[in-house]
């Protein structure tokens, strides 16, 4: 079973990578005030037909050929149902897919957020060519991470250099802490 929100979100993001998206946008909002955690993954990948969208929350539906179960979306939907939340997928073939999940932050079944920096490091590592954008919002502040800004600084050096990957992970986790504390 999946442990934390970061790893559940990774599953959704990996679907975007698998859908050959070249832009993937992750928005996470954590609000004490509203007592919600909202997670949104938007991609411009191949998209899904209305029939596939209907079926995709079934654990025995998958487009992969190596095995017959796909659990990412099913787990995420199950979690939102368990935690007084909501779940929604919008998808258009050839345009892309947006997955939105929202849960009650202090719900007894709400998992911890987990390591978002590590999770984003994995996404970058899965395909460094994707234009990946991460927007994180709390009641006190914001943080954003844009893979294109990093690429611009690196001028041709690969994001897959291990030092760079580790830097990305730490940079994001620092940014998140500062956003929570309301520091610039």
């Amino acid at each position: 079973m999946m442990q934390d929100l970061a790893m559940q979100t990774l599953e959704i993001l990996m679907n975007s990578v698998g859908a050959k998206a070249d832009t993937v946008i992750l928005r996470i909002r954590e609000s004490e005030h509203d007592n919600r955690i909202d997670i949104e993954v938007e991609d411009n990948g191949c998209g899904m037909s209305p029939e596939m969208v209907q079926k995709v929350t079934d654990p025995f539906t998958t487009s992969r050929k190596t095995r017959k179960v796909g659990l990412g979306v099913a787990f995420m939907k199950g979690l939102t149902e368990q935690c007084n939340g909501s779940f929604d997928i919008q998808s258009t073939v050839g345009v892309g897919t947006t997955v939105r999940a929202s849960i009650q932050k202090d719900h007894i079944d709400a998992p911890p957020m987990g390591d978002l920096g590590e999770m984003i490091m994995y996404v970058i590592q899965a395909d460094e060519n994707i234009d990946f954008r991460f927007y994180y919002t709390t009641d006190n502040g914001n943080f954003e991470f844009l893979s294109e800004a990093v690429k611009q600084e690196l001028e041709g050096v690969s994001l897959l250099e291990p030092e760079i990957l580790l830097w990305i992970k730490e940079y994001i986790n620092e940014g998140i802490i500062h956003a929570k504390e309301g520091m610039e």
């Binding site: 600084e153 690196l154 050096v157 030092e163 830097w167």
Partner: peptide, 9 residues
């Protein structure tokens, strides 16, 4: 930081 890391890389 990335500028420095770029040169090292």
């Amino acid at each position: 930081d990335l500028k420095k890391m770029r040169e090292l890389a």
